[in-house]
Design a protein around this nucleic acid. Structure first.
Lengths: 210, 210
DNA sequence: TTCGTTCCTGAACAACATGTCCAGTAACTA
DNA sequence: TAGTTACTGGACATGTTGTTCAGGAACGAA
């Protein structure tokens, strides 16, 4: 039941096996559909052992997701500093690269497996980062937003999560750098620009949302 | 087990009670956590009766979601025609209004309850609508997109779903009309415009995504 | 290498949820 | 009113869950 760092080799091996087994099974058949016995079977571990480490399926999943978040947070400060001093947003390209490395777990999270709590936390994290970054930037420049920043942050978060999900679930043919650049341009300059219209074609030219 | 339209009053009442009970319980404690017995208890229906109508929890949820989609589709053509002949996109304001009317069920769907299949279908539906609409519009105007339209469609869908989710889950203080207008402006003109900068401040002024 | 500790294991257990079946009773439609 | 259909509680087999325990194996430290 202790989820602290593991000094014993047996503990490390057992947990790693259980985690990998869970991720594989979830991607295959969905979190809801799998049983603890199937997990331990695939991990080649006694069922009793499972309960020595985790309370239930959920607990195991939470552990996996927490480690993923820690891994991401661990490398973040360095990436941040390389780009801008005091920058408070989440470096998007780094997120896509991290998702590429840990594609399986990102799929599990972004599918909302395990009641979707992990996805909700990820979403809220990004949104909070974004809103504070937007707020800091507009105040720094002394401009008054035409659209409330909570709305801007939610929409931006939606774009990011939506594209990221699509990207890890399909072979889109875009690299992390490409998709990041597209997302940035589209989000910053809008659909009029992105679709190749001149400002004079707008407004209304791409108003697909009556 | 027959899920066809109900002629018998008893059938209508039973199904309505079961559906309402499921939605309430799901919003309260999550789909995974509730049992069939709890559903029938709250609906004040015998447990055996449940299985006379639905195979399991999932089946009941699917029925609810299918009815929601049918309800939305039923009114869609009229709304569409009122705005633009041959318009193929999803009228966003109408979606928000529909979500406001059926807030409880939209919450269930947008939370990804019940393994998230309903949410995924909703997302894909919107994305397909959007991409075909963007494609038709750019071809009609003979412009070459700066950003691939599959990317644009995914990002736009993310904005819509993200904002819609946030809107039905919180008291944001924005009306359906307001949030729709914000979403449209932000998406069409981009963050530079939305935050009140002039074009000369860009590029980079709001590039929060290194 | 040895020794004391910790972990893994299979088996057995009670508790609970699921899905099915049935026969009696009530509610419905025509 | 009569004939059909739906609802009901109860009982049942099945499968999953989470706990416990005692023996044996693997571990880290000395």
């Amino acid at each position: 039941m202790d989820t602290k760092p593991a000094g014993d080799r047996r503990v490390r091996r057992t947990r790693a096996a259980l985690r990998q087994a869970l991720v594989e099974l979830v991607l295959d058949r969905g979190f809801q559909a799998i049983t603890v016995e199937e997990i331990t079977e695939r991990a080649d571990v006694g069922r009793a052992t499972f309960y020595a480490h985790y309370r239930d399926k959920e607990d195991l999943l939470v552990g996996i997701v927490r480690d993923l978040a820690e891994d991401r947070e661990r490398l973040l400060p360095a990436v941040r500093q390389a780009h801008a001093e005091g920058f408070t947003g989440l470096p998007v390209k780094y997120v896509f690269e991290h998702a590429e490395q840990e594609k399986a777990v990102y799929r599990v999270v972004l599918r909302g497996e395990g009641d979707g709590r992990a996805l909700r936390e990820f979403t809220d994290l990004i949104c909070a980062h974004a809103e504070s970054a937007f707020r800091a930037r507009t105040e720094e420049l002394g401009v008054v937003p035409r659209i409330p920043l909570d709305v801007v942050a939610r929409a931006w978060t939606g774009e990011l999560i939506g594209l990221l999900t699509w990207w890890v679930e399909n072979d889109t043919g875009y690299s992390a750098a490409e998709i990041t650049a597209h997302l940035r341009d589209l989000s910053v300059y809008g659909r009029v620009w992105a679709t190749g219209l001149t400002p004079s074609d707008a407004p209304g030219a791409l108003d697909l949302t009556p």
